[in-house]
Amino acid sequence: MFVINCPYCGERDQSEFNSGGEAHIIRPKQPTELSDDEWAEFLFMRKNIKGIQFERWNHTHGCRKWFNVVRDTTNDQIHAVYKMGEKPPKDY
C-alpha cells in the first residue's frame, strides 16, 4: 500500500484514494461530429504502461478532489502529483 501526497491534504495512505485510470484524456467538445472510430478512441482506448504512467486519482475518503499522479507502475514510486488543469511535468 503506497502513500499519495494529495495536493490538497498532504500525505495519506492509498486506502483513502481511488484510481480513475489514465489521465489527460479530454472529453471531446463536439462528440456528435466524431466518427465511430474517433469516438471509440476516446471511449475505450486506454494505455497500460509498464513504467511511468500518468493517472487520475481521487481522494475519495478525504477532500474528494481529483488530481493527477505520475506513477511508475513497476515499483509504485510516485514521481509527481499535480492538480487537475495543470500541465503535466515535462521530465517524464
Binding site: I26, R64, K65, M84
Partner: peptide, 13 residues
C-alpha cells in the same frame, strides 16, 4: 455523486 463530481471537477470545471 462520485461520477457527477468527477465530471464537474475534470471536464466542466
Amino acid at each position: 455523486l462520485s461520477k457527477l463530481e468527477d465530471y464537474l471537477q475534470t471536464e466542466w470545471p
